[in-house]
Write a protein that binds this DNA or RNA. Structure first.
Length: 594
RNA sequence: GCCGGCAUAGCUCAAAGGUAGAGCAACGGUUUUGUAAACCGUAGGUUGUAGGUUCGAUUCCUAUUGCCGGCUCCA
C-alpha cells in the first residue's frame, strides 16, 4: 500500500480501530458506536454505559495503550459475515447494541467485520466495518498519532438519542506531517477572531448585555463603516433600492408570514398591555409590506429591495460563539420581486454580485445547491422550474457546485456560498433562496402584459450573510492585519524627537487628516523604536511615517510598511497620493514599498 | 438544549486550606531618541455570583452565570 494523501484516510480509519481496541482494553464496559476518518483525522464514539466521561488522564492512558498495542505488530483482516442474524445476536449478547443496530441497517450490503489479529492468529479486536484498512500495524507510526479532544456527541447525530463520548484524534504517515499539522492548529489559534478582537480592541460581548449580543468598538465600527459604504454604493450601481424597517412588529404579522408556526422557538416576544410584539427574526415580511404599498406592473419589475436589517434570533445557549454565531445580527438582506421570466437573470446577477464582492476580500468559497426537502410548500412544477433555474444560472457560468438533495428550505430551493475560516471550518455567508411561500401568504400580485394579475417570484439573498459573522471571518482572514482601506488607523506619524520634530510631525498629521486619511500622531514620550514596533506589530497599522531632520529638510516622510519594512522616503504629497490611491482601489495588499 | 472543561489585576498568565504574584498596559519621573520593546518608581484584586463544609475558603462541595471544545441547530 502506498503512503499518500489518498490512502491517509485508510490509515486514520485503521488507527481509529486501534484506539477503540485500546479503549475497550482499559474500559471493558465501553460499547462501540462509530469511528470514521475525517478530513483532518478521525474520531470514535463510545458509550461508557455508566455515565462516566473520559478525563485528560484517561486520554493520556489511552494514548499509551495505543502505543503498547502497536508494538505487537498486528494485522487487519476482512471477514465476511456468513450469518447476519447470528452476528446480530452475538453483538447483542456482547452488549454491542450500536453495532447490532448498524448491522441490521446494512444487512443487505454484504457486511464485513475487520479483525485485528496478533501473530499467532488470535483475534484481539473486531469491528463491524466496510474497510479498507492498512494490512498491518507496521504502517502506523506511534509518534504520528495524537489524541486531541473529548466531546459529547449524540448517537446518529439525533438530539433525542443518548449522548456518547467522542474522542477526536489525528494520525499521519510520519511524525513530521503530524508536527506541521499541530503547528497549523497553533497558527490558526493565533488568528482566532475572539483573541484578535480583544487584542486589537475590536469588539466585546458582555455578560450584563447577554451572550451573542455584540458591542462593536470604534476600531471594528470603522471596518464596518467601510464595508457598509461599499455595500450601499454597489447596491445602487446594481439597481437596488434601499429601505429601513422597524425592529419589532405585532405577532399578527408573523402569523401571516408563518414564522410563529415554523420559527417560534427562535423568536423573542414582547408584551405590552395584552398586545404581543415580536423582535424581528427576519426582514422579509417588512419588505413584502413595502411591495404591497404599490401596485406593480410587469414593466416595473424586477424590484430589488435591500436593507442592512438587524434581526434577533433566540439561539440555543450552547450555539453561541464570538462573532460567528450570535443572537442579534445585521443581515445585508435583500428581496427581489420578479416575474418567472426574469428569475434566471436575477439569480445570475446575484451570483455575479457575490463573486465580485468576495474577490475584493481575496476569499475563496464553495457553492452548494440545495433542492426540495420532504416537507415543502408550493407546486412541484414550480420547484422543478426553480431548481432548474438555479442550476441553469450556475451552469451558464461553469461554476463548480455540490448538490444537497432535499436540503432546501421548506419554501424554496437555494444556493449557499461557504467561506472557509482560519481553521478550515466553512461558514455559510452568502445565500440565494427562492420563495414560493411568502408571495402566496401575502397575496402578492403584479399585472402582466396580458392584463392578468399574477404572483411574482421572490428571491431572498444576502451577500455577507450577517455583518457580525462576516467581520469575524474577515478578522481571521487577515489575521487582524486589515488592508489599508479597512484599517482602523491607516498611518501613524512618529517624530524622532518630540522636542525637535513635533511641529513638523503635526503638520504632516494635519495634512494627511485633511486628505481624508485615518492618521494618528504618536507624540508620546517613548522611544522611536518602541512606537514603530507597537504601531506596526501590535496594532497592525499599515504604515508608520518617521519624521526627523532629514524629512523636515525635504518635506518628506520615511515610510515603514507593516510586514515589509522600510518602504522608501516620499514627499508628503507623494505619500498622500499613493495611499489615497491604495485606499480608493481597495487594494488587498500594501502597495507602498521600496 | 446536551456532554465535558475553564473562570485570579485592563490584557496574558503564576501561586495556594491561613485573604494572592509576574510581564505588558495605566499613572509619575528621568530620557528626546534615525527605523520592530530606553530606565526608575507608583498604583491596581471581596480570586465570576450565591450558598455550604471549616476555627479559617480565593483553594474543598453544591447551585448559578458566562466563556471554551464538541453535538444539535444555524446568517
Amino acid at each position: 500500500m502506498e503512503k499518500n494523501n489518498e490512502t491517509l484516510r485508510t490509515l486514520r480509519h485503521s488507527v481509529s480501530h486501534i484506539m477503540a481496541q485500546a479503549v475497550q482494553n482499559l474500559f471493558p464496559q465501553a460499547k462501540l458506536a462509530i469511528g470514521p476518518a475525517t478530513d483532518t483525522g478521525f474520531y470514535y464514539d463510545f458509550d461508557l454505559t455508566d455515565g462516566y466521561a473520559f478525563t485528560e488522564d484517561d486520554i493520556a492512558k489511552i494514548e499509551d495503550e495505543i502505543k503498547r498495542i502497536l508494538k505487537e505488530n498486528l494485522t487487519f483482516e476482512c471477514y465476511v459475515i456468513p450469518d447476519v442474524d447470528a452476528q446480530i445476536a452475538e453483538f447483542k449478547a456482547q452488549g454491542e447494541i450500536y453495532k447490532a443496530e448498524l448491522l441490521e441497517e446494512h444487512r443487505n450490503d454484504n457486511p464485513t467485520l475487520y479483525l485485528t489479529k496478533d501473530k499467532d492468529g488470535k483475534v484481539l479486536f473486531n469491528d463491524l466495518c466496510a474497510g479498507p484498512h492498512v494490512p498491518s500495524t507496521s504502517y502506523i507510526k506511534a509518534n504520528a498519532i495524537k489524541l486531541l479532544k473529548v466531546a459529547g456527541a449524540y448517537w446518529c447525530g439525533n438530539e433525542n438519542n443518548k449522548m456518547l463520548q467522542r474522542i477526536y484524534a489525528t494520525a499521519f504517515w510520519n511524525k513530521e506531517d503530524l508536527q506541521s499539522y499541530l503547528t497549523f492548529l497553533e497558527e490558526a489559534e493565533k488568528r482566532d477572531h475572539r483573541k484578535l478582537g480583544n487584542a486589537l480592541d475590536l469588539f466585546s460581548v458582555r455578560e450584563e448585555v447577554g451572550g451573542g449580543l455584540v458591542l462593536w468598538h470604534p476600531n471594528l465600527a470603522i471596518v464596518r463603516e467601510e464595508i457598509e459604504n461599499y455595500w450601499r454604493s454597489e447596491h445602487r450601481k446594481r439597481g437596488y433600492v434601499i429601505v429601513n424597517t422597524p425592529h419589532i412588529a405585532k405577532s399578527k404579522l408573523w402569523e401571516i408570514s408563518g414564522h410563529t408556526g415554523h420559527y417560534r422557538e427562535n423568536m423573542f416576544f414582547i408584551n405590552d398591555d395584552g398586545e404581543e410584539y415580536v423582535l424581528k427574526p427576519m426582514n422579509c415580511p417588512f419588505h413584502i409590506l413595502i411591495y404591497q404599498a404599490n401596485r406593480y406592473s410587469y414593466r416595473q419589475l424586477p424590484l430589488r429591495m435591500g436593507e442592512l436589517g438587524t434581526v434577533y434570533r433566540n439561539e440555543k445557549s450552547g450555539a453561541l460563539a464570538g462573532l460567528t454565531r450570535v443572537k442579534g445580527f445585521t443581515q445585508d438582506d435583500a428581496h427581489i420581486f420578479c416575474t418567472p421570466e426574469q428569475m434566471v437573470d436575477e439569480i445570475d446577477a446575484v451570483i455575479d454580485f457575490v463573486s465580485d464582492t468576495l474577490k475584493i476580500f481575496d476569499m475563496s468559497f464553495e457553492v452548494e445547491l440545495s433542492t426540495r426537502p420532504e416537507s415543502f410548500v408550493g407546486e412541484i412544477s414550480n420547484w422543478d422550474k426553480a431548481e432548474a433555474g438555479l442550476k441553469e444560472a450556475l451552469d451558464n457560468r461553469k461554476m463548480k457546485y455540490e448538490i444537497n438533495e432535499g436540503d432546501g428550505a421548506f419554501y424554496g430551493p437555494k444556493i449557499d456560498f461557504k467561506i472557509q475560516d482560519a481553521l478550515g471550518r466553512t461558514w455559510q455567508c452568502a445565500t440565494i433562496q427562492l420563495d414560493f411561500n411568502l408571495p402566496l401568504r401575502f397575496d402578492l400580485k403584479y399585472q402582466d402584459k396580458d392584463g392578468v394579475l399574477k404572483t411574482p417570484v421572490m428571491l431572498h439573498r444576502v451577500i455577507f450573510g450577517s455583518m457580525e459573522r462576516f467581520h469575524g471571518i474577515l478578522i481571521e482572514h487577515y489575521a487582524g492585519a486589515f488592508p489599508t482601506w479597512l484599517a482602523p488607523t491607516q498611518a501613524v506619524v512618529v517624530p524622532i524627537s518630540n522636542e525637535k520634530h513635533a511641529d513638523y510631525a503635526e503638520k504632516v498629521y494635519k495634512k494627511l487628516r485633511d486628505a481624508g486619511i485615518r492618521v494618528q500622531l504618536d507624540d508620546r514620550s517613548e522611544s522611536m523604536n518602541y512606537k514603530i514596533r507597537e504601531n506596526l506589530q501590535d496594532k497592525k497599522t499599515p504604515y508608520v511615517l518617521v519624521v526627523g531632520d532629514k524629512e523636515i529638510e525635504a518635506n518628506s516622510v520615511a515610510v515603514r510598511a507593516r510586514g515589509i519594512g522600510p518602504a522608501g522616503v516620499l514627499t508628503v504629497d507623494d505619500f498622500t497620493e499613493k495611499i489615497t490611491e491604495e485606499i480608493k482601489s481597495r487594494a488587498a495588499n500594501l502597495t507602498i514599498k521600496e
